[in-house]
Amino acid sequence: MTHRTRHPYVFRGAVHCGVCERRMQGQYAHGVAYYRCRFPQEYALPNRIEHSRNVYLREDVVFEPVDNWLAQLFDPDPA
C-alpha cells in the first residue's frame, strides 16, 4: 500500500536520531525538508530521560555528501 505525502523525503525511514537511535520523522519548514526526533516531546521530557529537546537534520545538508559518495562507489573508471 502506497501512502500519499504532501512532500517527498529522500531518506524517508532511513534517518535515525544520534541520541536515542529512534527513526526520525520528515517535516517541511520554510520550504526545506528536515528530519526531526519526536521522542523528546512525546516521551523523554515527561519521563525525565536525558535527550536534547530539539534534534533536527536538514535533508539538503546530507543529500550532497551521500550522492557524491554513491557516485564514487559506482564509478566504473575510478581515478
Rank of each mutant, 00 (worst) to 15 (best):
Cys37Met: 06
Pro65Thr: 05
Leu57Ile: 14
Asp75Cys: 08
Val19Ile: 13
Glu21Asp: 14
Asn54Cys: 08
Met1Gly: 15
Pro76Met: 02
Val32Ile: 13
Gly18Ser: 12
His16Lys: 09
Glu50Ala: 14
His3Glu: 14
Glu64Cys: 01
Asp60Val: 10
Asp77Leu: 06
Met24Asp: 04
Pro46Gly: 09
Val19Arg: 04
Asn47Val: 05
Arg58Asn: 04
Ile49Phe: 01
Arg12Ser: 15
Arg6Tyr: 05
Val66Cys: 09
Gly13Ile: 04
Pro40Phe: 00
Asp75Leu: 00
Gly26Phe: 00
Glu59Asp: 02
Arg23Thr: 12
Cys37Phe: 04
Asp60Cys: 06
Pro8Lys: 05
Trp69Tyr: 13
Trp69Glu: 11
Asn68Ile: 07
Arg6Ile: 13
Ala33Phe: 00
Leu73Gly: 05
Gln72Asp: 15
Trp69Gly: 14
Asp67Asn: 13
His3Arg: 10
Val62His: 00
Arg12Met: 09
Cys37Ser: 07
Ala29Cys: 09
Tyr34His: 13
His16Asp: 05
Ala79Asp: 15
Phe11Asn: 03
Pro76Ala: 02
Phe74His: 11
Ala44Ile: 08
Glu21Ile: 06
Ala14Asn: 12
Arg4Ile: 10
Trp69Asn: 06
Glu64Ser: 07
Val61His: 06
Glu64Trp: 01
Arg48Asn: 15
Arg36Gln: 11
His7Ser: 12
Val55Asn: 03
Glu21Asn: 14
Val10Thr: 15
Cys20Asp: 14
Arg36His: 10
His30Glu: 15
Asn68Cys: 08
Glu50Asn: 07
Pro65Lys: 01
Val61Tyr: 03
Ala71Thr: 09
Leu57Ser: 04
Arg36Thr: 11
Val61Gln: 09
His3Met: 11
Cys20Ala: 05
Val66His: 01
Val62Tyr: 00
Met1Gln: 10
His16Trp: 01
His30Arg: 13
Phe74Gln: 02
Arg58Cys: 05
Gln27Lys: 15
Ser52Thr: 10
Pro8Trp: 00
His16Glu: 07
His3Phe: 07
Met24Leu: 03
Ala44Gln: 02
Leu70Pro: 06
Glu50Ile: 09
